[in-house]
């Protein structure tokens, strides 16, 4: 991180609610990785950040990936670093999990599971929603 950004920390800035919505499977396209990198950068600005996983986005959090065969970075491990970046609000949509035969036990990080109505109201209370 640049020194300039370190200096900005602790300043009396405005805190807004940012939601990053992940809707794409990992590896097949670059969206999931790019979205994660933006979240890591956003952590430096001390905003109220939440990450949401709906539709194929829930596939980003699957345990036990092995990407050696397709020669790409296994960034699923990086979701476990989010806690250290003080990004602790991770949400997944129940129906997206159900449609893919997944349960919380299949995921690499702790998440809060919301039904679609709860997800909708969480989305509605944000200041900024950025979608991938």
């Amino acid at each position: 991180m640049s020194d300039m950004m370190d200096d900005m920390e602790g300043g009396e800035g405005v805190v807004k609610k940012f939601m990053f919505v992940n809707r794409k499977a990992p590896h097949g396209t670059i969206y999931a990785l790019e979205g994660l990198e933006v979240v890591l950068v956003s952590a430096a600005f001390d905003q109220d950040v939440s990450m949401v996983f709906v539709d194929d986005g829930v596939y980003e959090l699957i345990k036990g990936m092995n990407t050696k065969g397709i020669e790409v970075k296994d960034f699923s491990k990086t979701y476990r670093a989010l806690d250290g970046y003080d990004i602790e609000k991770l949400y997944v949509e129940q129906s997206s999990m159900d449609a893919r035969g997944l349960t919380e036990a299949d995921l690499i990080v702790d998440v809060t599971v919301l039904d679609s109505a709860e997800m909708a109201s969480l989305m509605a209370e944000q200041d900024v929603v950025i979608s991938y």
């Binding site: 920390e9 491990k77 990086t78 476990r80 250290g84 970046y85």
Partner: peptide, 15 residues
């Protein structure tokens, strides 16, 4: 090795 990223300074000092 554990997280597949190089940490930001703030995160490094904490860790």
């Amino acid at each position: 090795e554990e997280y597949q990223i190089a940490p930001a300074v703030r995160v490094l000092t904490k860790a």
